[in-house]
Design a protein around this nucleic acid. Sequence first.
RNA 1: GCGGGGGUAGCCAAGUCGGGUCAAAGGCGACAGGCUUAAGACCUGCUCCAGUAGUGGUUCGAGGGUUCAAAUCCCUUCCCCCGCACCA
Length: 873
Amino acid sequence: MSYDFRAVELKWQRIWKEKKRYEAKPDERKKFFITVAWPYPSGPMHVGHARTYTFPDVIARYKRLKGYNVLFPMGWHLTGSPIVGAVSRLKGGDEKFIRLVKEVYEMSDEDIQSIKEPIDYARYFIDKSDLGYKRGMESLGLSIDWSKEFTSITPTYSKEVEWQYRKFLEKDLVTVGSHPVKFCPKDNNPVTDHDLLEGEGVDIQEFFVIEYECTIEEETIFLPAATLRPETIFGVTNLWLKKNSTYVIAKVDGKQWLLSKEAARNLSYQKSIEIIREIDSSALEGKSVLNPITKESVPIICADFVQTDVATGVVGSVPAHAPYDLVALKGSIAPKSVIEVEGYSEVPARDIVRKMGIKGEEEREKLDEATRKLYRDERLKGKMIIEYRDFYGKSVEWAQKAIEEELVAMDRGTTIYEFTKKPVVCRCGTECVVKLVSDQWFIRYSDEKWKSSVREWLKDMSLIPPETRNYFSNVIDWLRDWPFTRLVGMGTKVPWAKEWIIESLSDSTIYMSYYTIADVMNNASIEVDDDFFEYIFLSRDNRWKGNEIAERAKAAFSYWYPLDYRVSALELIPNHLTFMIFHHTALFKKEHWPKGIISLGLVILEGKMMHSSSGVIYPVAQSVNDFGADVTRFYLLYSVEPWQNFDWRGAEARGIARQLQHFYDIATEIIDMKKNGEKEGNEKEHIDLWLLSTLAKKMDAYMDNMENFRTRAALQIAFYDLMNDYRWYVRRGGNDPEVLNKLLERWLTMLYPFIPHLCEELWELQGHREPISCYLEAPSIDEGSLKEESYLITLFDDIKAALQALPLEPETIYIYCIPGEEGMIDEDFLKKEFSSDVSVQPLNRISHDPKGRAKRAKKGKPALYMEGRDGAE
RNA sequence: GCGGGGGUAGCCAAGUCGGGUCAAAGGCGACAGGCUUAAGACCUGCUCCAGUAGUGGUUCGAGGGUUCAAAUCCCUUCCCCCGCACCA
C-alpha cells in the first residue's frame, strides 16, 4: 500500500498541537532541558537549518522515551543590523536584492509592500512565509514547546538583558574605550562586511607612528612616519614624501604634523585634526629631520612610490630591510643594517630584490611579496645587531615592543589604524575609512580571574564532540575584550548609555534562562525590574517575594535550570558558546551553570556551501513537500554524525523515501498477521528466540549510541540492522506474529525519535491506545540461539563464497563438521537456499569425501565439498 | 602567521583512541538476475585484481620507521577545509 507521508504527518502534527503534547510543565519527574541557537529570521529556512533543529528534537524525543520531562523551546533572534539592512534595501529599491527576494525567497509584490518596518520582515520569515522558520519547524514535526516563544526584543526579555549588563557594570566586568571600525563617511555609520561593495574581509591594522622633528619656516613640525616595524628606526636613512604632492600642516592632538591631504582626511576619523595650511612636498625636499632615538639628522626625499592615501603619507626609509626603499634610493644612500638574519647577507633587502629579479619601484606586486617575505623571516628568525642599550642580540619582536614603549614614553610615538587593503567601498559607493569609535563599551573577557573560573567550569562540562574541549580551551586563552555596543540595528539599549545598542552576540548569552519563565511572562502583564531577576534567578529576597508571577517564574526556573545541553554550531565556539559560559559563571549560582554543549557541523548542498544571499539553498518547505518530514529527518541524521559536515544530495533523499515506504509495508504486514490471528501463542522456536535476542542486543547498542548523541550510529542500528535481522528471520522461515509484533513494537520505539509521524501512525495501527513510551526495555537474551545462528550464518556465507568462484550448479553440498555441531545446521534451509541436496557429515561419520576436504574442518567452521549437476565437480 | 579538523575503494562515509577478527560497515550510483503486462517499486546477487572451491595478490594522500602483524603507533612531507572577533 502506498503510504501518504504528508497526510499522516499533518494528522499527527495536528494531534500533537491539539493535545499540547510538548508543552512542558514542572512536575515530579527528572527534567531535561535542551536548547538550540535561536534563528535569525532574515531569509528562508533551508535544510541546513533543518538539521540544526531536528537533531535536538531527536534527542528531546529520545529523552522523553527514557522518562524525562523535557523542555525544548524556541525563540527568535532579531538583534542586529542585517534585517534592518534588508528592509532598507527593499525600500531603497536595490534591484539585485529585490530579484533575490522574489525569485529565491518567493516574496510577492504584495508581501514586499506589506513590509514597512524591520519587525515586519522578521515576522515574514518567522511565520508568514511558507519558507519561514516557524512553519518549517512545524512541518518537520519538531516537538517544540511553543508556549515559551519570545524574541530578543521582547520587552520583558530586554529587562533581563539590562539586568545582566547592570550586573556587569557593578562587578566591573565592562569597561569603556575606543575601537576601530570600518566606517562610511556618507552614511555616517559603521559598516559591516555585508554592507560592502568592495573590500570584504579586509582587516584593520594598527600602525605605529614615529614622529620625526623638523623645522619648517621656523616652526617645529613633526613628520609622522607610519610603520609596522618600529625597530628598524635604527636603520632609517631618510624619510619619503610623495613627489609633487600636496601635503598639509595640521594640528593633531595638540602637535603640528605634516600629513598628506588624504591622510589628514582619513585620520580625522581617528584623531582630532585641524588643518592649518597646505604645502607642496617639493618645498620640503632636502630638508632634514631628527631621528628621535638615534638623534641623527636624515634628509627628506620625494619619490613616486609613496601612496598618499595610505596611513600618513610620510614614510621612513630603511633600505637595508625594506625592498621598496632600497630600490627607490638606487644606491644614492648606503643602507644601514640593524637586523641579522640567517640565510641573508648584511643587506637582506638587496638579497631578496636580486633573487626576485626586481628592476624598479614600479614592480609593486613583486615588491609587496618581497616585503612580506623579508618581514616574516626577520621577525621569526632575526636578531638585532645594533649597539643601543641592551638591544644587541635581542629578537625583533622584543625590540619592536621596547622601541614602541620608549617612543611613547618620550612622546614621539603613537598609533593609527589603517585597512590592510584598499579600497574599501560601501554599498552606497563611498570609500570607507577607519573610524576610531570612542566611548565604545567592552566586556572584559580578558579578565584573568574571570577566565580562570571559566576554565575550571569547562573541566566539568560535557562537550560533544570531545575534540571541541581543546578548541574551547584555546578560545578562552586568547579571548580579548569584546566591544558589545553598536549604533545600528534592533536590540536592547545599554541601560546607562541609551544611544548604544547591545549587539547581537552579547544579548544572547543567557537567554536560555528566560525560556524557563517565558510562558509565565507571556501571560502576565507586569513591569519587571532588576529586583525581579535577582529574586527569581538568585533567590535574593526583595519586594517580589510572595508575588504570584514571581513565585511561579522562580519555581519554573529552579526546576528547569541549569541547561542540560546547548546545541549549536562548531563555528560558534570562538564567540557565542564561550560567551555563554563566561556570562553564566559571572551571573548565576554554580548549580545553574550550563552542563553540556553539542557543536554541530555544517550542511552543504550537493557539494556547495548554502548561502541565502547567493540563492544556493534548498528550503525546508521544498524538502518536506518533495519527500515529507520523516524522510527529511531520517536523511538529515543517517549519513554522518551531527558534528560532521553533511552534504545534502537529492538522490539519496529519494532513496530514503523508498526505504521508509518499504518499512511501512513490512510493518503493516506484521500488524495484519496479528489481526488475522495466525499462529498465536505457539511455543517459541529457535529462530524466534534468535530474533528477540538479537533485537535485545541491538537495543543495547542503540541506547549506548543515543546516550552519546551518535544519532547516525543509532539510526543505522535501529533501521538497517534490524531490517537485516528481520529479513534473515523471514528467510529462515520465521513467521510468528507475536514475535514479529514484539519486534515491531521495539522497532517503532527506537525509530520514533527520528521518524515520529510514521511511528505514531504504525503504533496506532498496531492497536496501542497510549502514546509511544517506555518500551525501551529489551527482551531477554538467549545466548545459545545467538551462537547457533551465527554458526549457521558463517556456514551460509562460506557456501555462497565457494559457489561464487565455481561455475557449477551444485547437486549435493557435503558439510563436514566437528561432531556435536551438526545440530546447528539447518539442512532444510540450506537445501532451499541453494536448490541442492545437503549432506551433513560429522567427522566421526563420514561416508563420502572424494577430495579429502573433511580434514579442513575447524571448530565453528565446517569444511565443504560440492558436486555439480553434470557429475563433474 | 596562530589555532582547530581532515585526506579510506566510482561518490558520500564508518573504522584510527584501545594494532591482528579489515579487502575494510552502511548508503548512493553502476551492473546482472528474479518478480511483474510493465516499472524510476520490490527482492537477490555483484561492484580493487586474479581464480573451476570457502583462496591468493595489491590497497586506506606520499615517503620512511617500529612490530610476528599497521588504514590504525612513531617520524618526515604534500594537499584540503574551518575560525582568528563586531558577522548573525
